[in-house]
Each structure stands twice: as structure tokens, then as C-alpha cells.
Design a protein around this nucleic acid. Structure first.
Length: 884
RNA sequence: GCGGACGUGGUGAAAAGGUAGACACACGGGACUUAAAAUCCCGAGGCCGCAAGGCCGUGCGGGUUCAAGUCCCGCCGUCCGCACCA
């Protein structure tokens, strides 16, 4: 018997070249087959792949390979999210060009991905920085512009002072830029935006159809869109106090039921009424200025005190003309939500009650709990400055008294809808959304140019189709901050396409999230002359399984859902009524690792995992810095990051243990949606398992099992049948677990089969030909089960087992249904719900037989201690519970 | 503050309301070996016991059920998302 160790790095290169030469992973053209589009979020070409990529792409690859074996026509492409800031920063640092840096990174990372043995159709590779990609994006942009889905607006924007660019709301995290981490400031600029708010309702209601998305993501999107239903109410202003030209103030409220609790109105400092009042009131003008200044940083807004100033203007209560309410300017009222004006009902809103107490405004309870003592408590709390916000019953509210808030809402709405002032109803029902339009202008070079020209005579003029793409100039300079396109000596100077006069190009480029909002559609026909090919799109879309990180729960996934609809609206959609790009979504967890620090330093000096060695275990485990021999500090387990140096380079793992080891590791142990902790011990364990599979293949091939393709025996010994049952159960389970992306459970099933096969093989051979055949069958099934996860080892073992073809081309085996159920079942026996014993019975045993057998058990007799059971519950094949 | 998820051995974890801890890592013992590595076998939730066996056990407290890690109510803790949204 040979006993050569499996040499993963050598075998892996070999099989990759075999697959390549045969073009195994080219996307099939037989569109009569059922399709399966498996997609992982494409990477940003940062330079090297990291373990997060390995995990993400291994999951997708496992599913893709499985589906291929199941007979699906599989689309499994890969590309590069290639525009973006880091390339430009690198260019600045190295006095180089972003394209050079990007393409070098792409080629390095592509080699790494190839070394992973991914079943990717590289013929469909896309790089978003390639003009052949972004030309289509420019076309679609112009079509969206023509339809009003892309527009230019002057607006307050989030300005990142480090990256020198604008950020979308979604890209501001805790008041800081998502990329630079710098405090974001507010700035007023002319900006391009996508009219995503046209789809607010559609994007929200369609979340219900995304039943294969994680609930968490669906909820996050719903909250982000933030629908609220309320009433727009026009309040007349007292003419004696109102500025000229202002006769009313319109507010939005979700609580019109609490109108009788109103004690003040408040408008945003930028509200026209505030501005008009400021014109004759310098104190107020100063106050508004103050508010605007405070509003420069989002972080400040969050902690700022709620302050206001009385304008002296009085508003007349819409339900009681004799009642006047003061109008304040307040720093917490937002100009861009609702109408920029509110009414305050202190007893029902915590912020309003604080405001009212601060400025000595009345607090009238209008909603209270129905019954005592809760009502008394709530009233006392209101007195103490704690608003009552729950359901209850109306009081102090005239015709609403006794109603619940919902009834009161409807009563107020229908009364005010009928009442008219100046020919218009006083109030109208209205739905408001938190979602803002998507500002897409970026003042950077390395992005898709926005294809318009600004002409003093003609205004904004689209670049004609025949002049597309508007390409980036190669000779831009990156030696100073600011937008290289804007300061380029010639690029922006062009003739107006309409009037031929001198004009300038738009120098903003598109947010890179635009690039990634449709790449999945482009993959279905990456060489089409038009942005998409309808037939290809209809066949392949939607993506059947999309896999990526949770960090894109809102940004990328919401943008894509909008953009795909916008494509449809501008003639770039399929003919089928497909609105959602991603049928199923899976968000995978991170790869995390322990951190290590040099001891005796104040600022943490992080150490690489390779710079320390370990002794002891558990609480006594210590780390020593190899270079100095000094004790190092073992820190917490955290996301792998350059700054904390807790990185493991996939290349090192692949070189040392092979791609299969890395792939298997990231799939085993932890559920795929949770974080997985990378450990040296773990990967060594995987390496042992790989050798074990290899040894088993050799044993089977060298006589423990029957020859490949030998005839199935007419009958099997009990031992052989037992192995066959385990084999087919494992096969059935592994199939279901892979389909459900529960890779860790699939892995455990494979271990069990391996253990069973090992012990059977120890007894195998010529003595029992039916066992030899069962061993061979188990070996084949085992290799096929590991093939989606460890494809190289599977290929090598498949060959060793004596098969002619490639395992990657073999059809997924079918489990024999008869072998999935046992002849005998083990039934737990409980007394009063407590497990006492178990009985083994034929599967066909009746309830009565099970009950009789259970009652006859010594352990049951003892537990009963002479008492007669009150009743006996029998769940066939599961459990007998004797209740006394 | 609002919303959500999670909490199981030394560790990662498994478990259509039906035998809790499968499987793996780490650990302990043994076999093989001059020795080590590799490999193979055995053990292992806690407590009591030589053992047979018994009691306890899925963050805490209640509840529903013949039966709860799983469902319901209330706490505690950890993590995540949103955060002046009227």
C-alpha cells in the first residue's frame, strides 16, 4: 500500500489547470436548463484578498459547484468594484496614476482568487473603471436625467473634509465619513442626485416580497425608508403678529389626535417664516444664525441642547378660533422633513415637554391610560416632566373625549379635511418618508464622469450619445488636494454640444455606489452593445443567491433595488416584470482573530500572529514575542485589520496548507452568518482531516473497497446495510444543508460519514463483498460531498478511487429513500417528562406495543413505585411519556 | 431614547415543541516507536458514588404543555442598527 501524503499545493495547481484547459466553468448556453445565478459581492481591488474574501467566495463557490452538480445552468461571475478613493490616495502618495495602481491590484488579486480554485467564469470579468463598462452607466445616467430620475439641486450636503468630497446620508456613520472617519460638516453645494424618493413607497412595500432575505436587513431597510402617516395641517396666523405675506403655517403631524394639547408651534431656523420674522427682529436673526452654526457637525447636533426663541407670532388653533399658540424658532426642527414646522404637544412627546418646561409653556394632558391607578401615575409623571406616549383614552379634548387616539386621529382628520380656508381644505392626510434623495456627485477624479456640459446659454446639456464615453483624462495630476478634473488645464473645456459656444464639462464624478448598483445585471451579458441584453437579463435575473457582508444592508442593497427599477423605467430593464435584483440574500459573518500587543508600552504596539509563540493553555496560556523573548499581551478577538495586525494572509495559508484547507476552515465550526475565529490549531486540524480523506481513498482503492463501477450485490450483510444507511443519510443531509447554506452542519455530517467509513474500512476487504461494495459507495459519496467545499482534494481522491472523469463534472448522487428510514427505532422513555430509559422497537411497532414495552421496563417500574400511571403519551418513533 | 438579534460544556457549536451537548478544537489516558512526529483506541457537562445509579443542568424569575434550549410574560447581560423624523 502506498502512503504518500497528499501534497495540496501541487495537486491544487494541477487540477486548476485541468479545469482551465477544459473550460469547465464557462457559463452554459443551454437556456432550456434551469438556471442558478450565484453571486458574491465583488471586491474592491485594494491590493490583496483577505480572509473575509476567502469566506465570502468559498460560500458562493460551494453553492455554485453544488448547483452545477445538481444539473443547473450556473452563472458564477466575478469582477472589480474598481473606482474609488484609495486608488487616488495611493496615486497622491506614490506620484503615480490611479489606473496603474488599480490594474496592478486587480491582476494580483485575480491570481489569488484563481489559487483558491473558485468555479468562476472569468470570461465575464468586469472592472467598473473600464470605459467599456462605464460608457453604459453614462448612457443610463442621461436617460435617467431625461426622465427626471437624475437631477441637479442646490442642497446642504455632508462634506468630508479629509476626502474632500460629498457623502450621501447613507455614507455618514455616527457623524463621520464612512471611509475617512473624519467629522462630516454641512455645506451648501450644487449637486447631482438620484430621485430615489420617487420609489420610497415601492421600495418599502416590496420588502415584503423579499422572503429570502434576512429579517434583520429587511427591517433595517424599512427603518431607513422610515414611513410615517400623518396629517398636513394649515394653521392660520394672527394677522396682527404675522410678517407681511404670511397668513398661515403648514405643519406635518403624526398625532393630530393630540391637537388639543398643543401649546406651541416651532419652525426650523431656515424656514421662510423664521427668515421673514428675522428681518425685523435682530435678536431672532442672531438666534437663527447661532442655530445654523451649531448645525455644522452632525455629531454636535446629536448632543446639542434643544433651544428656541419666541417669534412673537401667534397661530390660531384649527379646531378653536379663539385659541392662540405662540410660534417659536427651534434648533431641533429640521427644514427637510415634513414642512420644516411642527406643533408641540408637551404631554405626549418627551422632547416637547422638555421644551415647554424650559420656556414656561402650558402642559395639558390629552391622552392618559384608561384605568386607575395607571392614569394617576401617568398624570403625576406628566407633572414631573415625563410625557405619556402610549395608547389610552382622550381627555381635555372636547369632541374627542372618550375616544382612543386612533379614533381621535380619524375624527380630527375628517373634520379638518372638510373645513376649507381660501378654497383649500385645512388638513390633508399625508405620508412622509425619512429617505432622502441619493446625492451622487463626488468631487474626485477616480470615478465615472457625469456626462453633461454646462453652457452659459443652454444650461445643462447632455453629452450626445456618439461622444460617449466621456473618458477620464490620463494626464491628471494628483500632487495636491481637491478635484484633479476641475484643475486639469484642458479636459473640462469643450464646446457646447447644442450651441457650439465655449462651455465646461461637469467635473463631478459619480459615487462608486452607482457602479455597483447594476454590475449584477451587466454580468448577464458583459459584452452587450447596450447596457443590458434583454434576453440574457430575462433568463438570468434575479440573482438566485447573493452573498456578502452585513455592512451593505442599507447602502449597496438599497441603491441596487432603486437603480434596477430606474433601469426598468428608462428602457434598460428586462421584459419580464422583475423588480428585485436579488431573490435571496445571505449576509455572512466576519473572520476574526486574537490580537497581540507588546507589553510595557503605553500606546498599544500590535504584534502579528507570526511574531508571537504560545505556551500553556486556558487561563495559563501565554504569548511570547519571538524577536525579544519578552512576554506579550493576548488581547481580545477582533475583526482582522491592518491596524491591529491580527491578520492572516490567505496566500500564506494556501502555500502552507492549500486552498482546500482555507476553504474548509472558513466553512466549518461557525454558522456562516456568525463570526468565525481563525486559529492555527483549527487550520492544522483541517490539514489532518485532508490527509485522512486521502488515506481513506487509498485504502478503498487498494482493496478495502470494491473496484470503481463494480456491480451492486444482490444482497447486503447487516454491517454493509448499516454503512449504506449512514452513507445515504449523510448524503441527504449534506444536500439539504448546502442548499440552506448551513455549511457548518454539512461539515459535521461529513465528519460523521468519514468516521463511519473509517471504522468500516478497518474491517473491509474480501471477506464480505457486500461490505466492500458499501465501502466503495461510501467513499464515492464522501468525495462527492466534499467536492463543492474542497474541490481539489475531491478531484485527486476521485481519480485515486479509479474514476475516469472529473468529479466536478459528475452528477450529484441521489440518496435512496429506502435507506433513509431505519427498520428499528430507539424511543426515549420518560416518566413525568424525565428521561428514564430507552427502548428499541421495530419501526412498525404500534402505540400499544410501545406503551407495553415502556411500562415493562425495570427503570419505569422503579420510578412508578407501585403507582398506576394516569396516562401514557406515545409519539411513534420518538418518545413514550408515562404520566403519574 | 427607539428598534432588533443573541445568551447552551474549557472552546467553536448541534438540536421539525419530543433522548440537550451531534461534530470539531483543546485536554487527559493508552497503543505503536529507541524517541519524536504521524496514526489508532479510550475518556470527558457539573455534583455525589468503587460501582450500579441518583440529583442538578441551555443567563435569571415566572407561565403554557404530558413534554420547553425551542412558545408566552417580566428582568439581567452582550452585540448590532437608527437616532432631534414631528
Amino acid at each position: 500500500m502506498s502512503s504518500e501524503r497528499y501534497n495540496a499545493p501541487v495537486a491544487e495547481k494541477h487540477w486548476q489547470s485541468v479545469w482551465d484547459a477544459k473550460g469547465i466553468f464557462k457559463t452554459g448556453t443551454d437556456t432550456s436548463k434551469p438556471k442558478c445565478y450565484v453571486l458574491e459581492m465583488f471586491p474592491y481591488p485594494s491590493g490583496r484578498i483577505h480572509m473575509g474574501h476567502v469566506r465570502n467566495y468559498t460560500m458562493g463557490d460551494t453553492l455554485a459547484r453544488y448547483k452545477k452538480a445538481k444539473g443547473f445552468n450556473v452563472l458564477h461571475p466575478m469582477g472589480w468594484d474598481a473606482f474609488g478613493m484609495p486608488a487616488e490616495n495611493a496615486a497622491m502618495q506614490n506620484n503615480s496614476h490611479p489606473a496603474k495602481w488599480t490594474y496592478a491590484n486587480i491582476s494580483a488579486m485575480k491570481a489569488q482568487l484563481k489559487a483558491m480554485g473558485l468555479s468562476i467564469d472569468w470570461d465575464r470579468e468586469i472592472a467598473t473603471c473600464d470605459p467599456s463598462y462605464y460608457v453604459h452607466q453614462q448612457r443610463m445616467f442621461l436617460d435617467m436625467y431625461a426622465k427626471g430620475l437624475a437631477y441637479r439641486r442646490k442642497s446642504k450636503v455632508n462634506w468630508d473634509p479629509v476626502d474632500n468630497t460629498v457623502l450621501a446620508n447613507e455614507q455618514v456613520i455616527d457623524g463621520k465619513g464612512w471611509r475617512s472617519g473624519a467629522e462630516v460638516i454641512q455645506k451648501e453645494l450644487d449637486q447631482w442626485a438620484f430621485k430615489i424618493t420617487d420609489y420610497s413607497d415601492e421600495l418599502l412595500s416590496a420588502i415584503d416580497t423579499l422572503d429570502k432575505w434576512p429579517d434583520k436587513v429587511r427591517l433595517m431597510q424599512a427603518n431607513w425608508i422610515g414611513k410615517s402617516e400623518g396629517l398636513m395641517v394649515r394653521w392660520a396666523l394672527d394677522a396682527k403678529t404675522a410678517p407681511k405675506g404670511f397668513s398661515e403655517l403648514e405643519i406635518f403631524t403624526t398625532r393630530p389626535d393630540t391637537l388639543f394639547g398643543a401649546s406651541f408651534m416651532a419652525v426650523a431656523p431656515d424656514h421662510p417664516l423664521a427668515k421673514a420674522a428675522s428681518a425685523t427682529n435682530t435678536k431672532l436673526a442672531d438666534f437663527c444664525d447661532e442655530c445654523r452654526k451649531m448645525g455644522t457637525s452632525l455629531a454636535e447636533i446629536e448632543t446639542a441642547e434643544k433651544i428656541g426663541m419666541d417669534t412673537g407670532i401667534k397661530a390660531i388653533h384649527p379646531l378653536d378660533p379663539s385659541w392662540q399658540v405662540p410660534v417659536f424658532v427651534a434648533n431641533f426642527v429640521l427644514m427637510d422633513y415634513g414642512t420644516g414646522a411642527i406643533f408641540g404637544c408637551p404631554s405626549g412627546d418627551q422632547r416637547d415637554i422638555a421644551f415647554a418646561r424650559k420656556y414656561g409653556l402650558p402642559v395639558l394632558p390629552v391622552v392618559v391610560p384608561k384605568d386607575e391607578p395607571a392614569r394617576g401615575k401617568a398624570l403625576a409623571a406628566i407633572h414631573e416632566g415625563i410625557a405619556y406616549v402610549d395608547d389610552g383614552v382622550m381627555i381635555n379634548s372636547k369632541f374627542l373625549d372618550g375616544m382612543n387616539p386612533k379614533q381621535a386621529f380619524d375624527a380630527v382628520a375628517s373634520r379638518l379635511e372638510k373645513e376649507k380656508v381660501g378654497g383649500k381644505p385645512v388638513a390633508a392626510r399625508k405620508v412622509n418618508y425619512r429617505l432622502r434623495d441619493w446625492g451622487l456627485s463626488r468631487q474626485r477624479y477616480w470615478g465615472c464622469p457625469i456626462p453633461v456640459v454646462h453652457c452659459t446659454a443652454c444650461g445643462i446639456v447632455p453629452v450626445p450619445n456618439k461622444h460617449l464615453p466621456v473618458k477620464l483624462p490620463d494626464d491628471a495630476t494628483f500632487d495636491m488636494p481637491g478635484n484633479p478634473l476641475d484643475r486639469h488645464p484642458t479636459w473640462k473645456h469643450v464646446d457646447c454640444p447644442k450651441c457650439k459656444a465655449k462651455a465646461v464639462r461637469e467635473t463631478d464624478t459619480m459615487d462608486t455606489f452607482v457602479d455597483s448598483s447594476w454590475y449584477f445585471a451587466r454580468f448577464t451579458a458583459p459584452n452587450a452593445e447596450t447596457p443590458i441584453d434583454k434576453a440574457a437579463l430575462d433568463y438570468w435575473m434575479p440573482v438566485d443567491q447573493y452573498i456578502g457582508g452585513i455592512e451593505h444592508a442599507i447602502l449597496h442593497l438599497l441603491y441596487s433595488r432603486f437603480y434596477y427599477r430606474a433601469m426598468g423605467a428608462t428602457g434598460h430593464g428586462g421584459s419580464a416584470n422583475l423588480k428585485e435584483p436579488f431573490g435571496a440574500l445571505f449576509t455572512q459573518g466576519m473572520v476574526v482573530h486574537e490580537t497581540y500587543r507588546r507589553s510595557g508600552t503605553t500606546n498599544p504596539e500590535w504584534l502579528l500572529p507570526t511574531e508571537v509563540k504560545f505556551e500553556g493553555e486556558g487561563d495559563n496560556r501565554t504569548a511570547t514575542e519571538i524577536a525579544t523573548g519578552k512576554l506579550a499581551i493576548i488581547g481580545s478577538i477582533e475583526k482582522m485589520s491592518k491596524s491591529k495586525k491580527n491578520l492572516v494572509d490567505p496566500d500564506d495559508i494556501i502555500t502552507l496548507y492549500g486552498a482546500d484547507a482555507a476553504r474548509w476552515f472558513v466553512l466549518s465550526d461557525s454558522p456562516p452568518d456568525r463570526d468565525v475565529i481563525w486559529t492555527e490549531d483549527g487550520v492544522r486540524g483541517v490539514s489532518k482531516f485532508i490527509q485522512r480523506i486521502w488515506r481513506l481513498s487509498e485504502e478503498i482503492a487498494d482493496g478495502k473497497g470494491a473496484k470503481a463501477g463494480s456491480a451492486k450485490p444482490a444482497s447486503f450483510t447487516p454491517e454493509a446495510t448499516a454503512l449504506r444507511r449512514q452513507t445515504h443519510k449523510a448524503l441527504d443531509s449534506v444536500s439539504r444543508q448546502i442548499e440552506g447554506l448551513r455549511f457548518n452542519v454539512a461539515v459535521a455530517q461529513i465528519y460523521e460519514l468519514t468516521n463511519a467509513l473509517s471504522s468500516a474500512a478497518a474491517k473491509g476487504g474480501n471477506a464480505d463483498p457486500s461490505l466492500a461494495w458499501a465501502i466503495r459507495e461510501a467513499g464515492d459519496v464522501l468525495v462527492q460531498c466534499i467536492a463543492p467545499m474542497m474541490p481539489h482534494l475531491a478531484e485527486q481522491s476521485w481519480q485515486r478511487l479509479g474514476h475516469q472523469g472529473l468529479v466536478v463534472e459528475a452528477a450529484w448522487p441521489t440518496a435512496e429513500a429506502a435507506l433513509l428510514v431505519d427498520d428499528t427505532v430507539t424511543i426515549a422513555v420518560q416518566v413525568n417528562g424525565k428521561r428514564r430509559d430507552e427502548i428499541t422497537m421495530p419501526k412498525t411497532a404500534t402505540k400499544e406495543q410501545a406503551e407495553a414495552a415502556a411500562l415493562a421496563l425495570d427503570s419505569v417500574v422503579r420510578a412508578l413505585a407501585g403507582a398506576t400511571p394516569k396516562k401514557v403519551i406515545v409519539v411513534p418513533g420518538k418518545i413514550v411519556n408515562v404520566v403519574m
